[in-house]
Design a protein around this nucleic acid. Structure first.
Lengths: 233, 233
DNA sequence: ATTTAATTGTGTTTTAACGACACATTTTAA
DNA sequence: TTAAAATGTGTCGTTAAAACACAATTAAAT
């Protein structure tokens, strides 16, 4: 290549993905039990090196597709982790990406091939390198954003009930929310469309299935929401 | 170095800094009129390459110190910009950092040496590479965060009046805020300490000078604020 | 000395949202 | 038929927000 910048350091760049899922009760993480070096036998996030001619976000999506078989995942960049010694083998700058998927959607075979497992956040093992820091940051990001934007829907199936949505928010914030106030607040946004169907798999009264109004969703994405109880200033 | 990862691409890593300042009336950016290659003569953000043995954040602070002579600047990482062709000379991944400084604090000589200038956001020229995207993201970040956290204070002197703070918020959000409601809202947070002094440089009624209660500031940093009018859902 | 204009500090009122709680409805299983 | 569990809708008191009025301070103009 011509015209290079002389005398500057060139370093490895990787991406690591913090993948959240929701099974109806608990918030889960997709983690890898490493059967390869370095740090074989330990738990880590799914990651990989960025290729020579690959855009950063494309790299993250390649890694996500590789693991889950999914193409249209909700992905956001979390940020770069750049401590000199974060990888003991060789200096590697890692850009962390945050992904939300409906836990029933992914390719179970691909997940098995990578020796990956869905682990409840509450049982999360220690991870290699600075991956624990990445998870902490990702959870903060999820809580912060889910309070203001409707990103939580990414973790649910296409059609969902209000009680399901409430359970998701209760899992994200690890708190109890009043059923009736939550319902009123959510419906007042006008972002939910009544599909007419009901959740027939429930043992008692069947809740109404809603889907998200994608148009309004787009328009309101940058409008502030206030889902969470104020918790007192 | 031992145990390297074989056959992986190593690329240049840079940091670019989006530096905001406030002169009492307008929100400004510290930009460089480049008198060096590449893109000599054009405008850009202040940036530089990350060194071999330098942590990412340390690199950003080195560059900020180099330009402003300041050590204790408010800095946050914005994120990585990693398009393959974002730098036409050679592939460079850049991590953007967001900085807020009191516009009267910096070392004017150092700024002159780098051929840097404070430019009002409304008169911002086109910048090189993807620096315009970085500025757009930084402004979003500022607006998003200033609505919830007291980061705006970083742009003001130690002691400031409520009308000055209001002008800052009006500049950040490019909107009018009701003077009386703003004052009540700010004071009700309990984060402002009356210094006893007044702003004697004002032509008419001298406003009370406040300073920030650093202890409460730290404790409340993660509590949500609602400074901005709701703008209607 | 008095008035005027500009700016700042404090108070009031109306409206809307929130949180806490009551009650009725739906569905399966006892 | 009744009981138990979950869902849908409504009410009420409290709090916070937005809109607006008025008084106080200061320097310059008269």
């Amino acid at each position: 290549m011509m015209n290079r910048y002389p005398n500057q350091a060139r370093i490895l760049v990787a991406t690591d993905c913090i993948i959240f899922g929701f099974d109806g009760e608990e918030l889960k993480l997709l983690l890898i039990k490493r059967n390869f070096e370095p740090e074989e036998g330990k738990w880590s996030l799914m990651g990989g090196f960025l290729k020579e001619e690959e855009d950063l976000e494309a790299g993250a999506k390649r890694i996500l597709f590789d693991l889950t078989g999914l193409n249209n995942i909700y992905v956001e960049q979390l940020g770069a982790f750049g401590k000199v010694d974060r990888d003991p083998v060789e200096r590697t700058l890692s850009v962390a990406f945050f992904a939300l998927i409906n836990i029933r959607d992914h390719d179970q075979e691909a997940v098995r091939m990578h020796n990956a497992h869905w682990i409840s956040l509450k049982n999360k093992p220690a991870l290699i390198f600075d991956h624990d820091d990445m998870v902490v940051l990702a959870l903060e990001h999820l809580r912060y954003n889910a309070a203001l934007h409707p990103i939580g829907f990414e973790l649910l199936p296409e059609a969902f009930t209000i009680p399901q949505l409430q359970k998701l928010y209760e899992a994200i914030y690890d708190m109890q929310i009043d059923r009736r106030n939550f319902s009123r607040k959510i419906l007042s946004t006008g972002l939910l469309i009544d599909t007419g169907a009901k959740n027939m798999s429930a043992p008692t009264k069947k809740a109404i299935l809603y889907c998200l109004d994608k148009d309004k969703y787009q328009k309101k994405f940058y409008a502030f929401w206030y889902f969470m109880p104020s918790q007192g200033k």
